[in-house]
Design a binder for these strands. Sequence first.
DNA 1: CGGGCAATTGACGGCACTCAAACCAGGTGG
DNA 2: CCACCTGGTTTGAGTGCCGTCAATTGCCCG
Lengths: 214, 214
Amino acid sequence: MSAVAAIVSKVDMPAHALLAEEGERSVYVYNVTAGSAKLYKSLPDGRTQVLGFLLPGDFLGLGDDRLGGLAAESLTRVSVCRFRRREFEELQDQFPALGRRLLSLAQDEIARSREQMLLLGRKSARERLASFLLGLYDRLEARGEKSDPLPIPMTRTDIGDYLGLTIETVSRTLAVFKRDGIISLDGVHAVRLLDPERLRSLATGDEADRAAAC
Amino acid sequence: MSAVAAIVSKVDMPAHALLAEEGERSVYVYNVTAGSAKLYKSLPDGRTQVLGFLLPGDFLGLGDDRLGGLAAESLTRVSVCRFRRREFEELQDQFPALGRRLLSLAQDEIARSREQMLLLGRKSARERLASFLLGLYDRLEARGEKSDPLPIPMTRTDIGDYLGLTIETVSRTLAVFKRDGIISLDGVHAVRLLDPERLRSLATGDEADRAAAC
DNA sequence: CGGGCAATTGACGGCACTCAAACCAGGTGG
DNA sequence: CCACCTGGTTTGAGTGCCGTCAATTGCCCG
């Protein structure tokens, strides 16, 4: 613990700050302690894919010095613990348990990526939004935080870029959920899940599209 | 090395054999030594996303006992080195270098997953196919294998399920590439890349669609 | 109160999907 | 040796979901 304390520095950053840039090999490793951020990757013409959202407890930049530059930007004000990469890696050699922990985190990330690939490759817009909302819900739940209404820290653009959709489709699909009584919107940055079960069957595609029953 | 030899067994399997099933926690860890296989995940209604293809040297089942059941099936006859998961994990504790190597592999996989998410979320059918062909090409190249024509061990269905497209779109898009002189087909399981540069600019979206120039 | 950006809503179009038919190759049996 | 069969692939015609473009609304903050 003291070894950690020796090389970490606590940093606060405002919203919309770049924590890492595409094409840069990041010097730092971060651990988010408060706030949220997005991880993304872009094509030359500007099309963007958001790869994930960072919530308190998440690491950033672990293996990211290798191929595939990717960027990270804070969504809100964030507090992070910052390590120099060099020093962080030395820490790993000193404490084998840390290495095992990191491997475990990496495998979690792989599992999440796979789920997201299924979503991006095969799910409809409704299924994507349902999965997204439940993903946020479950994540907060796992963290033991009560969440009604469910806070949505990101913009429609971020959501669209995360789900491989346009902001218009995101907006329209949420409107349909609302019309169907599955959710209610509490402003644009909060949602009430009125029928989580229905949402869950939508997310996995169990539910043949009942839009007709209107 | 001798420690490895003690717990590994070499196994040959025919084409279309299931190495792992969705929902099973796999008892084994495999290392492919010859042939190829696919990794995939499905929705209840049968829609399938291929998450990746395994070529000689690739591992299967490393962290896959945790969430997200996923299946693996051989595309061709394959030879694998098989370990019992229990024993393989003990090996990790004995040899720290192995743990570091696995972390590195996991990070490579994460980087590849991210690239694929960008593809699935944001690229057009042409860009996906171009990326796919180059991915195969680069992968063989990295392995130091000459490859003209480039062998394509998987079916159109597998390719479609990997790229988030239908087989018809895969077939049509390849036909367009052929018409444009970018590739030539050598049967259905081999391709000649006639203009890799063009393909590469297509893959990254640099190239505004010049289909009009015909 | 008014400026500006995000979000919503509407009209329209296109890329990829669906459905369907023709084609092709490899394997089997007569 | 060749007809037949079967599964994969190609090609064609038509549709639909989501993207594009555009106008409106809503909200935050000065």
